[in-house]
Computed example of a mutant assay.
Amino acid sequence: MKKMLLNLAVVSTLIFTACNNDDDKIPTTSNLTLNIDGLENLGSDYKYEGWIIVNGSPVSTGVFTVDDSGKLSKTSFEVDRLQLAAASKFVLSIEPTNDSDPAPAATKILAGDFSGTNAAVSSKNMVGDFSSSTGKYILATPTDGMMNNERSGIWFLDLAGGSPATGLSLPTLPAGWKYEGWVVMNGTPVSTGTFTAVDMADDNAATSTFKGDMGNGPGYPGEDYIKNAPAGLTFPTDLRGTTTVISVEPNPDNSPKPFTLKPLAHGVPADANDHVTFTMGAGPVKEISGNVTR
């Protein structure tokens, strides 16, 4: 009997040990894989950070950078297995490189809900849907009181009805983003200013270093290029033959150049007259999208 009890004890110990060993082999993490095109290099001061939303709360999946060709420095991330399985959504944000805040920044660029193992992510779900955006503008220089350089300024308004009216139709942006107007002169993009409301003056209306001395211009986004031209350019100028663009910029901004998202653009006609309304077309990038798998 004692021998039988001893044998039973040994078998029980072996079974318990085997079970424990099996438990130890269960992985605690799973891989999250990103397949996203269209992201730009944020420079040294900012980085991208992924997040999964678990029971309504964000959980970081890790950070990465993007080079000038759009290649991600990292596409696969080890994430807690149970949290990843329970995640309802993936979100991508832009964060300061030296980030002391454990929560996501307001500048979220992509998002998508998980359906099984896949989440189709898009800037349309997070920043805005620009598929129906439209724009109009005129050439004029109302801030200098002169009539001899009217093709040196651009204002995003509609003058077709005889009096100024709103020229841009754009969705309201979430926190962390602003619109910015641009004119590309001889390959150099020069800002017209940032704005959030299409029917109000832009943020630098009173402080622009380019405008003239006779006021701030109409209460719409725009700019007069009268003085203090950037290196390589001369103001006043002639904007005919240039390209005008509306971009969507991170706030705070990572670069003095236009961001990837550019929903509206137009080549200013070479024979354009001032105070005539021109219609913008679709910009080169209205959406950034991709897939995330778990």
Rank of each mutant, 00 (worst) to 15 (best):
L170Y: 13
G181T: 08
E78H: 04
L173Y: 09
E40A: 15
A160R: 12
G222C: 02
F130C: 10
N98M: 13
T279I: 04
D129G: 11
D144F: 02
I138K: 09
P102H: 01
T65R: 10
L92E: 05
L32N: 04
I138Q: 09
T207I: 09
G232E: 13
S69E: 14
F278W: 05
I15Q: 03
G70F: 06
D24W: 11
G176C: 08
N251G: 08
V184H: 13
R294K: 15
A119T: 08
D113G: 02
G161Q: 05
N273I: 02
E249A: 06
D238S: 00
F210T: 09
F130V: 00
L233D: 08
G145T: 01
V11M: 02
T33I: 15
V184M: 15
G162R: 03
I26P: 00
V63Y: 14
A86V: 04
A175Y: 12
I53E: 11
N41A: 10
G167R: 02
G283C: 04
V127K: 10
V285Q: 05
L5W: 05
T28P: 03
A120C: 04
K211L: 05
V276E: 12
G50F: 06
N228L: 13
V127H: 09
M280I: 01
D202K: 10
G193Q: 12
F130T: 05
F195T: 10
A106Q: 15
Y48P: 07
A106L: 15
D213R: 08
T172D: 14
A265M: 13
M200K: 15
N20Y: 14
S100N: 14
E49P: 01
P221R: 09
A106C: 10
G176S: 05
G181S: 08
A197S: 14
D203P: 03
M200P: 06
T13K: 10
T61L: 08
K74R: 15
A18R: 10
W177C: 08
P174E: 10
A105E: 15
V11E: 01
K89R: 15
D253K: 13
G112S: 06
M1C: 04
D45M: 03
A272W: 07
P284G: 07
T134G: 01
V91D: 09
T65Y: 08
M4P: 01
K257C: 03
I53S: 13
G187D: 01
V198R: 12
D99W: 08
A165Q: 12
E249G: 04
L84S: 05
S100D: 12
N55Q: 13
F210W: 07
M126I: 07
A111N: 11
D45R: 00
G281W: 08
A103L: 14
D224Y: 07
D199C: 07
W51Q: 12
E287H: 03
T141A: 14
R81G: 06
N204D: 15
P236T: 02
P263R: 12
S152G: 06
L92M: 13
P284K: 00
G283T: 03
G50I: 05
T260G: 01
M214I: 11
L42D: 04
T260C: 09
A160I: 06
P174M: 14
V285T: 10
F90C: 09
K257M: 15
T117F: 13
L39E: 04
